[in-house]
Structures are given as structure tokens and as C-alpha cells.
Nucleic acid binder design. Structure first.
Length: 103
DNA sequence: TGTGTGACGATCG
DNA sequence: GCGATCGCCACAC
């Protein structure tokens, strides 16, 4: 468990309900602008699923991960919709309204 | 200790 | 416009 992954989890926990963030943004905020994959890897190994809403983390274009997700992208989508996240007809998250930017 | 891999992302063809 | 490939870097084996 590196400082980077710990920071990833911390940032993900900060995403408010009804918002999403991207792997790239989290990686950037955690100090690795090119570390998008590492973020995914870290979440895959998810140390703290109770407090880490990894379903609020999506691709840069708003689409969801395709197969390795906890219960499938459909489940992920439903969870997000329940939280108030807007989806486009494309089946992607409306990044314009729901993208949470780390500051 | 070294090698392979992967919830990504961007660029090339 | 879409598909395939390369690059990134931490972590597991």
C-alpha cells in the first residue's frame, strides 16, 4: 500500500453523492498525471470497499468499466442513478453536470 | 530481485 | 469515425 493508493482512496471517499470523477483526475490529484491505470488497479484491489464508493469513478468520457467491475456496469449505473447522477442516452455519465473536480 | 499485468488514456493507422 | 497499439507505473507472484 503506497502513499499514492492511500491518497486515491481518500480522494474517492471525498466524491459527494450524486457526483462522479474520472480515473485520470484522481490520478492527477493523487500526484500521478499518468497514473490512471494505477487508480483502476488500486480500486480493483479495493482495500476499503465500505468507505470507498468506486462506482463513482468512471472513464474520462463518462463511460463505465466493462467487465471487471464489482457487479457489472449495469449495477454500477443503477447505483449512480439512484444517487442522482445524470446519464446520457449513450449510457454514459453526464460529465458536464456530475463531474466532481478535485481542487 | 525481476517480470508480468492491469476498473486507463492518448495517439496512431 | 472507429479500431488497434503503445505508454504509464504501482503491485502481485
Amino acid at each position: 500500500m503506497s502513499e499514492f493508493s492511500a491518497r486515491v482512496f481518500e480522494l474517492v471517499r471525498k466524491i459527494p453523492q450524486g457526483c462522479v470523477s474520472t480515473y485520470g483526475d484522481i490520478a492527477f490529484a493523487a500526484g500521478k498525471p499518468r497514473g490512471a491505470r494505477i487508480v483502476g488497479y488500486a480500486l480493483h484491489r479495493n482495500n476499503d470497499p465500505e468507505n470507498t464508493p468506486c462506482h463513482r469513478v468512471v472513464f474520462k468520457d463518462g463511460s463505465l468499466a466493462d467487465g471487471y467491475v464489482f457487479g457489472g456496469k449495469d449495477v454500477q449505473r443503477v447505483l449512480l442513478e439512484k444517487e442522482g447522477v445524470i446519464f446520457t442516452p449513450d449510457g454514459k455519465v453526464d460529465m458536464k453536470k456530475c463531474r466532481f473536480v478535485m481542487v
